[in-house]
Design a protein around this nucleic acid. Structure first.
Lengths: 361, 361
DNA sequence: GTTGCGTGTGAATCACGAA
DNA sequence: TTTCGTGATTCACACGCAA
């Protein structure tokens, strides 16, 4: 049996069983924080459903890895089925499990886009002085397959980083203080609650408003709460009733940001396409006008159909830019300039004016 | 057949076959930079139309993941046989291959101690704006097994990091400039030459003077050269004759530091923003350099872990400044000077560069 | 000598929609 | 499924030459 896709809900149950009931190709993004260690939470079972007990001689270590791998293949396989062709997935782990996660993801056909390092500003020190301070965790960001046309909000990430490309190493604090959920005894409710800043960056980078986000290991609901705040739709799955209760209350209390605060720096490739010829038609750049490159080394003349002519050659603004410079390709909008008050101005200013008019009207 | 262990040599040949001829349990540390199995699909151009010189060498091409895994299991298995019970291994990779490396290492019985992130100060940007800038690579540090009594020079690492525990994220520049080996046409000799600062930290962290270090993918000899400089014994294996020739010459020219400059030591120091040790690692203020006070009344010598030595005394730049002047305390950054073009310049100038400032964040 | 500008380059899985 | 046209896209350094 299979449900219609339920939105903005958090379910209690085994994530593999729950995912099996959801329809294929229905989610835009998955965020998963799977158990890091078999012995910790008793969530792991062998394929025959017997529970793994924690013995640590060499033979059993191998059995543990095999069991962990089986479990990992099962939930990643279901998650992949639920993802539509262009969806992406984030999986977080530490050196205990992340290598198995990554290898299995590759085996299942996921196409890794980046591995992201979450550098903790306040990690726990190494008390025994026998290793380097374990100051980071790793996120694997992957598309469903190599041909996916996945979403990456490049300009938004650049804006988040002082107008420099966002790198693969992120420096963020642990979840502490008021953000950390606690029980009535003041003890932390969940051992590995993720910081909201981490989910903020993940969701802003790889999803759009109204996109559907699935978290199969929902825990205390950082993903669902942040999805709601940022105007994304969410589906959470969590096995432990206490965590489900906390996640439900927390997400319920969360308030969706108003639309004007949800807008991110738009991607230029998604701006409405305006034909160069339309400016010729309207007389804003009449046929006969001469265009130049930035340093006046090459020039061309605008024709009535919006193509350019230079000598015997004729073509679009892009084709002519490439042709005259010998480049493989060329963005004609930024290459060609027109004279305005004696100075050269890129013809792209025509387009930005147009865009402004459209959004205003 | 099997050789006695040959020391301080670089061999040309297939690393699996060569390792098979060496005796079991004979090396203290392995550093391995295996092929990454990048899967580049076409030409990549910068926004200025220049072409990126990608890694297209035959040695990096594998038919599929299964082929790569078979190769990886084979060389890691031989490396493990050569390691004695308490030896450790370093393996470096990127998201293309590191998950497979780590999972296979765990399957073979290695015990992962840390995953280390080499954060590059100057990575190549993402030119098409379709992903996060791939700004790091990952090193896996592992013992031969869970019971290994491995070497970790905790105090030396702490000293190198201005008396703060060394973290799992390391900020180091790429190998560029004079350090990068070039052929007679000025082209890079090896597409992926590793920086000396990386090997410096690896060797200081996990080996002792006279320890035997094996590099099965020796390339142009960064490992062997740094092992010689730091007084370690080395065995290099490399398949490509051009790389072997370069590694031999480079390692030949390298000079072993004198004994008093090789000693590493515990130190208790303050923590300014930029660790003094980072300049030592990067070779901007190499071990062996003599520092003076402003009026050349006292002097001291820089050691590989970033502490100073003068006579029988050893300590941080701050402690040694205080000690040698009889003061209660001292700001080593302004007290100590280095010679530059015959004049004395405070070492604090090292910190004023953009690079230095960034290493803190 | 110093400063500043132009150029080159690094382990890279680097477009996408319409017809 | 394939072809084709449009047009989006770079950061930190090192080095050489000019002012």
């Amino acid at each position: 049996m299979s449900f219609e896709l339920p939105l903005d809900q958090i379910f209690r149950g085994d994530c593999i069983e729950m995912m099996q009931m959801l329809p294929s190709g229905s989610v835009d993004c998955v965020f998963a924080d799977p158990p890091y260690n078999l012995q910790l939470r008793g969530e792991l079972r062998r394929p025959d459903e017997s529970v793994v007990d924690g013995v640590d001689d060499a033979w059993d270590k191998f059995a543990d890895f095999a069991t962990y791998d089986t479990f990992t293949r099962a939930w990643l396989g279901e998650a992949r089925r639920l993802m539509h062709k262009d969806a992406t997935i984030w999986v977080i782990g530490s050196y205990h499990n992340v290598f198995r996660l990554g290898a299995i993801m590759q085996d299942l056909g996921f196409w890794i886009l980046n591995d992201i390092v979450w550098r903790k500003s306040n990690p726990m020190p190494n008390f025994r002085g026998r290793r380097f301070t374990n100051a980071h965790e790793t996120l694997i960001w992957a598309a469903r397959g190599p041909e996916s046309k996945y979403r990456f909000n490049y300009q938004a990430m650049k804006a988040l980083n002082d107008d420099l490309q966002m790198r693969s190493d992120w420096y963020l604090p642990l979840c502490t203080g008021n953000e950390r959920l606690r029980n009535t005894h003041g003890l932390k409710l969940h051992p590995t609650q993720k910081p909201e800043s981490l989910l903020h960056r993940v969701l802003i980078a790889s999803t759009h408003v109204e996109d559907i986000v699935l978290d199969p290991f929902c825990g205390t609901g950082t993903t669902t709460a942040m999805a709601k705040r940022l105007g994304r739709r969410y589906i959470g799955i969590e096995r432990h009733p206490d965590y489900v209760e906390a996640a439900l209350g927390r997400t319920q209390r969360e308030v969706r940001l108003p639309p004007d605060q949800l807008a991110i720096t738009p991607a230029r490739r998604e701006a409405p396409r305006v034909p160069f010829g339309s400016f010729v038609e309207r007389g804003e750049l009449p046929a006969g006008t001469t265009l130049w490159d930035r340093s006046r080394r090459v020039k061309a003349v605008v024709t009535p159909d919006g193509s350019l002519v230079s000598g015997q050659q004729r073509g679009s603004i892009h084709k002519m830019g490439a042709l005259l410079t010998g480049a493989a390709s060329c963005n004609g909008w930024t290459f060609w300039h027109m004279e305005r008050d004696g100075a050269l101005v890129p013809i792209d200013v025509l387009r930005t004016t147009e865009t402004a008019l459209r959004s205003a009207g």
